[in-house]
């Protein structure tokens, strides 16, 4: 972790009030510091509150306890300044826009002139140069996710948030997408928080993996990933990788 903290999740707790008035604690006392240019994966089973953490960093929710800051500021300041990039599990592409226009959307929302060269470069980078004029409905699931990642990166954000971006894809496509994401990320090492339930994905992509478990969710374990970048897909077959995967899996299911 670099000395400069970019994202500071400072002892955050989150309580939701249900319709019948009962209170549900989603996460309790989560403390995460992410350095500038660091890629952190938040690994956990569904329902552990890891997406809640991401939504807090994205200023989509307000913490009940503690606070989240990005470079000392409220995350909402960052999104107002159009400095946040996000890719959701559901690609969230606008069906009425072409691929190119979807990637250019952040420029338009920010009221900036569309940098067509940048849009074109990013589409080439995610391997969709030929599909610039296609509509999302004409693409496969993996292609749509690549478009949504290109869109998240187009403004060169200070912070990139990835909420299970490949969660809905089959295992083979997913592995392939991870290799691509790793390559794309290496172009422009942006501070990244990835939320995932896949051990291999977290290990392959991140500089550091945090395991979140329990209800309410807390950070149960932290692991630094030593592999040098750029990472070749073959590292996933090394004994070292397998040993770390076993350790993370055990941390995910301590009772199993």
């Amino acid at each position: 972790m670099s000395p400069e903290t970019a994202i500071n999740v400072d002892h955050v707790g989150m309580v939701f009030t249900l319709d019948d008035g009962t209170e549900l604690t989603a996460v309790r006392d989560v403390d995460i510091k992410i350095g500038k240019g660091e890629f952190v994966a938040l690994l956990g089973p569904s329902g552990c509150g890891k997406s809640t953490i991401l939504r807090l960093v994205a200023a989509l929710e307000e913490a009940s306890f503690g606070r989240v800051t990005i470079e000392g500021q409220d995350p909402a300041e960052l999104s107002r300044a159009h400095r946040l990039g996000v890719a959701f599990q559901d690609h969230a592409l606008l069906p009425w826009l072409t691929v190119k226009d979807n990637v250019a959307l952040p420029y338009k929302v920010a009221g900036k002139k569309v940098d067509t060269t940048r849009v074109k470069e990013l589409l080439e980078l995610v391997g969709l140069g030929k599909f610039a004029g296609a509509r999302p409905s004409q693409l496969s699931g993996g292609m749509r996710q690549r478009v949504s990642i290109a869109r998240a990166l187009v403004l060169r954000p200070d912070v990139l948030l990835l909420d299970e971006p490949f969660g809905a894809l089959d295992a083979v496509t997913r592995r392939h997408m991870n290799v691509e994401l790793q390559r794309i990320w290496a172009e422009d090492e942006v501070t990244t928080l990835l939320v995932t339930h896949s051990v291999e994905e977290a290990l392959f992509l991140a500089d550091r993996v945090l395991v979140m478990t329990g209800r309410p969710g807390t950070v149960a374990m932290e692991m630094k990933i030593p592999f040098a970048r750029p990472r070749d897909p073959s590292i996933q077959r090394t004994p070292e990788f397998h040993a770390m995967a076993d350790k993370l899996t055990l941390a995910l299911e301590p009772e199993a």
């Binding site: 946040l84 969230a92 338009k108 920010a110």
Partner: peptide, 26 residues
């Protein structure tokens, strides 16, 4: 408009009028 699109516009820092023009109306 779908929740994930609304989330996207919020994260991108869209103003009310931008959201109306580029999301709600379409």
């Amino acid at each position: 408009s779908r929740q994930n699109h609304r989330d996207l516009f919020k994260v991108l820092g869209a103003s009310k009028s931008t959201r109306m023009l580029r999301l709600d109306l379409p």
